[in-house]
């Protein structure tokens, strides 16, 4: 079991490396001709969107609660990291260190906000919680529109451009790995138990509020990191970027990808962040396209494209080589063992 686990992580790492080098190869050889830079940009967008969507999936999928204010956390992370990197530029730090410090600051700021919002809000469930999270994101937006440190409603520009595709890619990989490990850990399972039946969970001695706030905080932390990558890619932003529509967009990406599936979040986020670019000509109909996709998914695949299913390289490998009796058996193994 232990060995299979290690092999699985190793295989996944090889897979990630392969994908990375594929991108490097394509970009460095100008495979798309003149649009290479443009596609590189979209891929960077996809990377930070994946972080944000996967973090929202922790709340929606793992914890089973709807949060409609995820843009609030993204915004806190984006502004905090931008302020930190502005303050630290020219202090002789190498770019990568500056970037990581800024992202960490963004993540921590968003995480702290997550604790502050989570403690009172997570006593609520379902629709009530969703409303509180909307209110929270609006408060953040209005607050940032009025604070001078965030540019006070004007565009905050001149943020140093630190996000390139290669760094964003690896940051995304690290974030996804940590989130995946969280879901598969004891904590993740406890939170799932709370989602399943909170009465039974508290009867088993689980401190329901604690685990919910913890998950909310982890989700907020990663949303903040996503926001940091966003800020250092866009180099200019305005608080109204992070409005309700942005939260709704993130949520629809979670739902389309599959509630509870990190694979789904990755595919959903990359698909939906490149979709508007593919239809640049009719960009004002973008939300319409979203809605149509959402309706279609809800009709034909109510659990999202991937449901709760996770892609696993070791499963593919075992299926190809016919070891351990293929998919069905190994599925049971992973479910029972980790």
């Amino acid at each position: 079991m232990e060995k299979r686990f290690k092999v699985s992580y190793f295989l996944n790492f090889l897979g990630v490396l392969a994908v990375f080098f594929l991108f490097v190869l394509l970009f460095e050889n100008n495979a798309f001709g003149r649009s290479t830079q443009y596609i590189k940009g979209i891929s960077t967008t996809a990377c930070y969107t994946i972080i944000m969507v996967a973090s929202l999936n922790l709340v929606v999928g793992c914890m089973g609660e709807f949060s409609l204010g995820h843009a609030g956390f993204v915004s806190v992370g984006a502004y905090a990291s931008a302020i930190v990197s502005n303050g630290l530029t020219g202090k002789g730090l190498p770019d990568i260190a500056l970037f990581l410090v800024a992202l960490l600051a963004g993540g921590i700021a968003a995480g702290l906000t997550g604790v502050l919002v989570g403690i009172p809000a997570l006593r609520l469930r379902g629709d009530y919680l969703a409303i509180v999270t909307i209110a929270f994101a609006e408060i953040i937006r209005v607050l940032f529109c009025n604070l001078s440190i965030t540019g006070g409603g004007k565009t905050m520009s001149g943020i140093i451009k630190l996000s390139n595709f290669y760094w964003s890619f690896w940051i995304m990989v690290v974030c996804i790995t940590v989130m995946y490990m969280y879901v598969r850990s004891r904590f993740g399972r406890t939170v799932k138990a709370i989602r399943e039946d909170y009465i039974a969970a508290s009867a088993s001695g689980i401190n329901v509020t604690y685990y919910k706030v913890l998950t909310f905080t982890v989700a907020a932390f990663f949303a903040g990191i996503g926001g940091g990558v966003y800020a250092h890619y866009m180099t200019a932003m305005i608080p109204t970027n992070f409005n309700f529509m942005y939260s709704a967009e993130l949520l629809s990406e979670v739902i389309i990808g599959g509630i509870g599936s990190i694979t789904g979040s990755i595919i959903g986020a990359s698909f939906l962040s490149s979709l508007p670019e593919m239809m640049r000509q009719f960009s004002q109909y973008r939300m319409l396209a979203y809605s149509v996709v959402l309706v279609l998914v809800m009709i034909f695949k109510p659990g999202g494209i991937f449901g709760a299913w996770e892609f696993s390289l070791i499963r593919v490998y075992e299926r190809l080589t016919g070891r351990k009796g293929g998919w069905e058996k190994s599925r049971k193994k992973t479910e029972g063992g980790v």
């Binding site: 399972r189 138990a193 969970a201």
Partner: peptide, 18 residues
Amino acid sequence: HIFPQMTVEENLEMGAFT
């Protein structure tokens, strides 16, 4: 009150949570 989307084994493991 059981955890319907978890396996029987996982349900029991949750009982030993503390």
